[in-house]
Design a protein around this nucleic acid. Structure first.
Ligand code: SF4
Ligand code: SF4
Lengths: 152, 152
DNA sequence: CAATACAGTACTTATTTAGTCCTGTTTATA
DNA sequence: TATAAACAGGACTAAATAAGTACTGTATTG
């Protein structure tokens, strides 16, 4: 159905929550509480985001995660790449991990490149900050206290 | 991994094959032969494309399918919509079939709309004819005889 | 009326994704 | 320096989705 994986969706929710506290670290259990998402899943997503250098981790007691850059410099394409792998609509476009088994025979091989690039460009054009500002989340009411995000 | 479903990919391959014979009908078994794809799957895809009005069916003996419009007037977005449902990156964008369970609580609800529209626009901008011409398939060597498409 | 070909739907299997768990490493602080 | 907090990494299980198959029904040609 051509949709984002739930991981990516959750990832953005988590990042948005982190963006509300730009100056302090957020721990995985903390974020799970704030967003009402299951803790193990949150931990998994954060690890992937850290690996993709979207966020940076501070280890040890009093550690946690923080955004690697200001929200305006984090693109949606990066987030998707960190959580879902590279954008590759078909197996035969440049940058895809896997190979289509009939690529050598298929007359269309390579034809998807242009579309893939267009989609990637669209995703590259939107930052985390854009996403947040477009839905009223930058409203000062949000983020005032832990738990306000996804709870009522 | 943010990719097209195999159905959609196959669908485009089938449509390309049909586009090579604009003036005659192609039957499902015939297309299966030409593309080397499994016959039942081909039949399923063609039914979906017909339902989505990308191709038109002629029933009865000597029947078959043909493109509903010239290849230049069929967009990739239409093909995806016919085979995979509407483009809806998340459950909360306009036009999505399903509803996110936390939509009423999620601060990001609706924030994806802009991205979704951008992706849709990118897909709307490319026609079947573009796709074909970009990979050398319009080369007269292709389509000369049945079976040349995906066979060697 | 017999053969061909699409329409629709239900079902099974395969693949992918999501979710869980466990073990190891790093670091602040008492 | 011992302890607890917190991340890293990977293995495993369960759930959801997609793919593939099969069958019954309807329309059309000759
Ligand atoms: S080579 Fe052909 S069948 Fe394979 S992914 Fe590309 S377009 Fe699809
Ligand atoms: S409402 Fe929030 S969690 Fe649900 S699909 Fe939209 S962005 Fe994702």
């Amino acid at each position: 159905m051509f949709k984002l994986s739930r991981m990516t969706d959750y990832g953005v929710v988590l990042l948005s929550s982190m963006a509300q506290r730009p100056d302090c670290l957020s721990t995985a259990p903390d974020l799970a509480d704030r967003t009402m998402l299951p803790a193990p899943t949150v931990a998994k997503i954060l690890k992937a985001l850290a690996k993709g250098q979207v966020i940076v981790a501070t280890r040890g007691a009093q550690g946690g995660y923080s955004l690697a850059r200001p929200a305006a410099d984090i693109t949606v394409a990066e987030i998707i790449a960190a959580l879902d792998g590279p954008v590759a609509l078909t197996a035969c476009v440049d940058g895809s991990d896997d190979n289509c088994s009939v690529e050598r025979l298929c007359p269309l091989a390579g034809g998807w490149n242009r579309i893939n690039l267009a989609v990637k460009a669209a995703l590259d054009d939107v930052s985390l900050a854009d996403l947040i500002s477009e839905c009223g989340m930058s409203d000062p009411a949000f983020g005032a206290a832990p738990g306000i995000t996804l709870q009522q």
